[in-house]
């Protein structure tokens, strides 16, 4: 009896796996689609992690841009922050015979090889936001955090007219975006020429709103006057504003953030919480444009650096102003 029960227990999952395999192994279709409405080009999009709103936005941008082209179909995959899952996704896209791969890789090293292999098999690969090593890909599209930080620093310097007391709420200084947004900011401020500008407090808020609020409370407690708060992301700037409001000092200073997600930073500007935010573009829409160019056989640059956009209360109504 026990034997039969044991067999039954193991046969059920086994049959399940067989069925999944059967479904999964439907023969790899024809390669090279015509790019018409009847036989659309198929693009595989591998996103490293949909846990972050910014990456959700990237997928949304890709989806919206692709929806405007009837001759295009996009398959979305989420690697859930696992490099090896993402590697498997790239391999799956190759096996499926997609016409082009867009990947926003989690890390450079583990994904360099699968991307290179896909590229060598003649499938164009667009690498979005984070890079892979070497040159075995079609094109890289990404934003430049140093440049965005520099624009923020310059805007703040101009607003203050060369003198003022600043608070910097840093992301994570062990992360490259945190380092870049800090470095660019300092470059944009030009502290050597503008000796009146002074960073009176700088704290690490790990990109998190509650932590930003705590750091800002410390900044408020140790400084009687603050002119500008620069946070490395919009949730950080929002947390700082909440702290200042709780202290009744939110009108004393300006709040500047980065990222400008439509549902987040842009809304904060619209509500008058932030004075400015700088777009960290996802490149989703650009990726589709570049993908179409590649599929039509046009030449595209190897590296495309995206510009940013400045949103202030004065220009938010017209969708911000581009900074190329």
């Amino acid at each position: 009896m026990t034997g039969r029960r044991g067999m039954r227990r193991s046969t059920v999952p086994f049959a399940g796996i067989c069925m999944l395999l059967l479904i999964g192994c439907s023969p790899a279709e024809r390669t090279g689609h015509a790019g018409t409405a009847e036989d659309p080009w198929i693009i595989g999009m591998s996103q490293c992690n949909l846990g972050e709103p910014w990456r959700v936005q990237m997928d949304a941008d890709v989806r919206a841009a692709a929806a405007e082209h009837a001759n295009l179909r996009v398959i979305f995959k989420d690697a859930q922050n696992e490099s090896l899952t993402q590697r498997a996704q790239v391999e799956e896209f190759v096996e499926q015979g997609v016409d082009l791969i867009i990947i926003s890789p989690k890390e450079a090293a583990p994904l360099t090889r699968p991307v290179a292999e896909a590229y060598q098999r003649g499938i164009p690969v667009i690498v979005l936001d984070r890079a892979v090593q070497g040159d075995q890909f079609t094109t890289f599209i990404g934003a430049d955090n140093v440049k965005i930080g520099r624009e923020a620093g310059r805007w703040i310097r101009e607003q203050l007219g060369g003198s003022g007391r600043l608070v910097e709420l840093k992301g994570l200084m062990t992360s490259v975006p945190g380092q870049d947004r800090n470095r660019g900011f300092l470059e944009g401020l030009q502290l050597e020429e503008n000796t009146g500008l002074q960073i009176v407090f700088s704290g690490e808020m790990k990109w998190l709103e509650p932590d930003a609020r705590r750091e800002m409370e410390s900044a408020l407690a140790t400084n009687a006057a603050i002119d500008v708060v620069y946070a490395h992301n919009d949730p950080g700037a929002h947390g700082a504003w909440l702290a200042a409001r709780a202290a009744g000092r939110e009108n004393e200073m300006m709040f500047v953030g980065i990222d400008a997600l439509p549902h987040e930073g842009q809304q904060y500007v619209r509500q008058g919480i932030l004075d400015a935010t700088f777009l960290y573009p996802t490149g989703g829409a650009e990726a589709i444009e570049v993908a179409l160019a590649i599929l039509r056989g046009e030449e595209v640059p190897k590296h495309i650096v995206l510009g940013t956009r400045l949103f202030t209360q004065e220009n938010i109504g017209r969708g911000g102003d581009p900074i190329p």
Binding site: L172, M173, T174, F201, S202, G203, E204, K206, R214, E215, E217, S218, A221, T222
Partner: peptide, 13 residues
């Protein structure tokens, strides 16, 4: 502890 470290702007590490 967290507050004292924050007030003194101690780095994350």
């Amino acid at each position: 502890l967290q507050k004292i470290l924050s007030l003194n702007a101690a780095p994350e590490a």
